[in-house]
Simulated scan of single mutants.
Amino acid sequence: MHSCPKHIKHLVVKPGGKVKLDRIDPREVDFLGKEDKARAQLAEDIVEIDRLQDRLYAEGKRSLLVVLQGTDTAGKDGTIRGVFNQTGPLGVSVTAFKKPSEDELARDYLWRVHHAAPRRGTIGIFNRSHYEDVLIARVRKFAPKEAIEARYDQINAFEKLLVDNGTIILKFMLHISKKEQAERLQERLDDKTKHWKFNAGDLEDRLLWGEFQKAYELALGRCSTEHAPWHIVPADRKWARNCIVAAVVRDTLENMDPHYPKVPWKASDFEIP
């Protein structure tokens, strides 16, 4: 397991622990210090993530999977832009999991997820993920209750398989308040350039806020493991959300310590004609 930066270690969900999201303030980010200094640290972390990702890509032996989950408007897209936009595109893949296709529904629910797992040498980012199958599937009753119950252990086993084969996994639950979600949904209605982001179905899910929160609490508690920990990220403040994710990603890459591969020759052996 990676070592989370000291000032945000409390965000990691302990394996087997119970989670109460209503006891976690989505705006409480005093542990980050002053905003201007946190933003400066974010800028440094972004540069270092790019440098470490280049080494990871060159090494070509391991991979990093970043899972982003959260209610609608929690900032999954914004986190990807804010943390990974400066990272070399060759070594980063982003998969946005939407409603399963007919072909995907004809297979087991993890099939499309395993297919999208990052190649060695790359960072893979999941915008939503296999956790939809114990979140929306649970709330909307898209599968029998006993099938949903079995999925927590199946997901843990699936993630252990990835880890055992060289993939480090980081999971972030972007935790926003119902009030903040309302403001962000209203922004999408007020700004014509954001109309494409608005989905009337989000309003239906909002009516089920309490049920979704309970589903998240179950998933966080039952699927935070030593090999694939969950981090609950206070996400009402976008800058703080990005600072936290970037700090954990950088710390994890530093712990992985990828190296450029050695070559069986010296530069002096060659002369460019």
Score class of each variant (00 low, 15 high):
residue 65 L to R: 05
residue 72 D to W: 12
residue 77 D to M: 10
residue 65 L to E: 12
residue 102 E to A: 11
residue 61 K to N: 10
residue 86 Q to N: 06
residue 76 K to H: 10
residue 81 R to Y: 00
residue 101 S to Y: 02
residue 111 W to N: 15
residue 80 I to C: 06
residue 62 R to M: 08
residue 92 V to Q: 05
residue 90 L to E: 13
residue 80 I to R: 07
residue 74 A to S: 15
residue 88 G to H: 12
residue 67 V to S: 09
residue 74 A to F: 00
residue 93 S to P: 01
residue 62 R to A: 12
residue 107 R to K: 15
residue 86 Q to Y: 05
residue 77 D to G: 12
residue 89 P to V: 04
residue 61 K to C: 06
residue 76 K to G: 10
residue 93 S to M: 04
residue 93 S to L: 01
residue 88 G to F: 03
residue 105 L to Q: 12
residue 101 S to H: 02
residue 83 V to W: 03
residue 60 G to T: 11
residue 61 K to V: 06
residue 94 V to M: 02
residue 76 K to P: 14
residue 83 V to D: 02
residue 90 L to I: 04
residue 61 K to D: 12
residue 59 E to W: 07
residue 102 E to K: 09
residue 111 W to K: 15
residue 71 T to Q: 13
residue 102 E to S: 03
residue 94 V to H: 03
residue 88 G to L: 03
residue 80 I to K: 07
residue 79 T to Q: 09
residue 104 E to F: 08
residue 74 A to V: 06
residue 84 F to S: 03
residue 64 L to Y: 08
residue 92 V to H: 04
residue 85 N to H: 04
residue 91 G to A: 05
residue 108 D to N: 15
residue 98 K to S: 06
residue 60 G to W: 10
residue 103 D to A: 14
residue 96 A to N: 06
residue 71 T to S: 11
residue 74 A to E: 04
residue 101 S to P: 01
residue 87 T to K: 01
residue 107 R to F: 04
residue 102 E to W: 00
residue 114 H to F: 15
residue 75 G to S: 02
residue 59 E to C: 11
residue 114 H to W: 15
residue 59 E to H: 08
residue 105 L to C: 05
residue 90 L to G: 02
residue 80 I to W: 01
residue 95 T to V: 10
residue 73 T to D: 06
residue 82 G to N: 02
residue 102 E to F: 01
residue 63 S to I: 05
residue 99 K to P: 00
residue 107 R to M: 10
residue 95 T to C: 03
residue 63 S to W: 10
residue 104 E to C: 08
residue 95 T to F: 07
residue 69 Q to W: 02
residue 74 A to W: 00
residue 92 V to I: 14
residue 81 R to L: 04
residue 112 R to C: 15
residue 74 A to K: 01
residue 110 L to Q: 14
residue 99 K to I: 07
residue 84 F to I: 00
residue 68 L to A: 12
residue 110 L to I: 15
residue 79 T to F: 07
residue 109 Y to C: 12
residue 76 K to W: 10
residue 103 D to L: 11
residue 89 P to L: 04
residue 75 G to K: 00
residue 59 E to S: 13
residue 75 G to H: 00
residue 76 K to D: 06
residue 99 K to E: 08
residue 99 K to H: 05
residue 62 R to N: 13
residue 90 L to T: 10
residue 98 K to M: 07
residue 73 T to I: 11
residue 95 T to M: 04
residue 68 L to E: 01
residue 67 V to W: 08
residue 91 G to P: 03
residue 113 V to T: 15
residue 85 N to Y: 00
residue 82 G to P: 02
residue 90 L to A: 12
residue 86 Q to I: 01
residue 68 L to V: 07
residue 79 T to C: 12
residue 96 A to M: 04
residue 69 Q to K: 08
residue 66 V to F: 09
residue 80 I to S: 05
residue 106 A to L: 08
residue 111 W to G: 14
residue 103 D to Q: 10
residue 60 G to M: 11
residue 80 I to T: 09
residue 104 E to H: 08
